[in-house]
Amino acid sequence: MAFTGIDEAIAAYLRRSGKTQAELAEELGMSENTLSWKRRRKREFKLSEVIRIAEVTGCSLDEMVPKEEG
């Protein structure tokens, strides 16, 4: 399954797992507010955070990061 971005992968994981955003944020070692800001693109995810999200959600980096066309 290909996602169009990190937020879509996170949303699918939360639906599938029945976890809340707060529970995921705790697993990732960040506050719920920080995760929310990053999901809404008010702040950027660090590469290490993207890798950790991939590990927790079971998604590959290729699924979460859209490829640029051109």
Rank of each mutant, 00 (worst) to 15 (best):
R40N: 13
A54Y: 08
N33C: 02
L61H: 01
L28A: 08
T4P: 00
S60M: 09
F3L: 11
Q21C: 06
M1P: 08
R15H: 10
Q21M: 13
E8M: 02
E55G: 04
V50G: 00
D62C: 02
E32P: 07
D62L: 13
E23F: 07
R39V: 02
C59K: 14
T20P: 04
S48Y: 03
E8Y: 03
K46V: 01
L47K: 05
F45M: 01
C59A: 14
E49S: 08
D7Q: 14
E68W: 08
R40V: 01
Y13T: 03
E23R: 12
W37C: 06
K67M: 10
R41T: 01
M30N: 05
A25K: 08
N33H: 08
L35E: 03
K46Q: 15
I6R: 00
E63D: 15
V65E: 05
K67G: 11
T34G: 01
L28Y: 08
K19Y: 11
S48C: 04
M64V: 07
V56E: 05
R39H: 03
R40Q: 13
A12Y: 13
R16F: 08
K67L: 14
W37R: 15
E8Q: 14
S17V: 09
L61Q: 03
A2K: 15
F45G: 01
L28I: 07
L35G: 02
S60W: 08
E23T: 09
R15A: 12
G58S: 02
K46L: 14
I10M: 06
G5T: 02
E27F: 04
R52E: 15
E23I: 04
T34Q: 10
K67T: 13
A25H: 09
E69L: 12
N33G: 11
R39K: 15
V56Q: 02
S17E: 07
Y13A: 01
G58T: 04
E26M: 07
K42Q: 11
D7S: 14
G70R: 14
E68T: 12
I51G: 01
L28Q: 08
E55K: 15
G58M: 03
R43W: 02
R39P: 02
A9P: 04
E32Q: 15
E69R: 14
K67R: 15
K38H: 03
S36Y: 11
E26I: 02
I51E: 12
P66H: 11
M64G: 04
A22G: 13
S31M: 06
R39S: 09
N33I: 10
T57H: 09
T20S: 15
S60R: 11
V65S: 06
M30I: 15
C59I: 00
A11T: 13
K38P: 00
E55I: 09
G5N: 11
T57N: 09
M1Y: 11
D62E: 15
S31H: 08
L24N: 07
L61D: 03
T20L: 07
I53V: 13
T20Y: 10
M64C: 07
Q21A: 14
A2Y: 11
R15S: 13
A22V: 12
K38D: 00
E69A: 14
T4E: 10
A54H: 06
S48R: 09
L35R: 04
K46W: 10
R43P: 00
S36N: 13
E27R: 14
L35N: 01
E63H: 07
S48W: 05
R15I: 11
A54E: 07
A2R: 15
